[in-house]
Design a binder for these strands. Sequence first.
DNA 1: CGCCAGGCCGTGT
DNA 2: ACACGGCATGGC
Length: 234
Amino acid sequence: MKRAPSPAARLRTMHDQLVAAYGPQHWWPAKTPFEVILGAYLTQNTAWKAVELSLDNLRAAGALTIGGLRSLPIDELQRLIRPSGFYTRKAPAIKAFVAMLDHEFSSSLKKLAAAPTATLRQRLLALPGVGPETADAILLYALGHPVPVADEYLRRIAERHKLTTQPARGRQGYDSLVALTRQAFAGDHETSQASLFNEFHALTVAVGKAHCGRTPHCQQCPLAADRARFGNGG
DNA sequence: CGCCAGGCCGTGT
DNA sequence: ACACGGCATGGC
């Protein structure tokens, strides 16, 4: 009899199953780091399709750059990002990020990225409209820091597969998912942690978009085997 | 047509 | 420390 695998070991196996099913994702779907940051704000509780409309508007207005965004009046910014919703909150939040960059990092994303991960994360979390997921998405995808990103899809996967006993929602639940992801990839030394966290988060979104993250008993789901053995019924 | 999307924040308990 | 409602639009 083999001992039951740890949740972290199972999650590492699930990652391989997702890679086999969906292939490399090479995220984030944006061209420049600043565009990644804008997307991170805009996609909060919002379908990516709608975010693309807003990014198209910003591109046409020449506002996908720091300077372009800075010179854009806030009411104009609201109008351009209207397709992705919550614009009365997201527009000031984006403006606050640019102001922080201007005042504290000489308008340089490179200088921002050079700060230590822990202090940088705290600084991002102190910004309006930036919670743990947005902060970590910016850290990983725009600034290249090796931090996992936990999202609603991963939360549901952890719940259905019974990967954690921690409270599912709230800051504690988020942190427990991050810790679990770190454990899952702790033994990987061949590839950079950042690349693995990058790919893993993209794959959780891929499986979510493919329906298997929402439908409780989806047999075509690449993760069906694990769920059959350890998860909720299906 | 109603539901929901790659969250976050303020308020109440 | 959490649950809950509000924020807003577009896709399906």
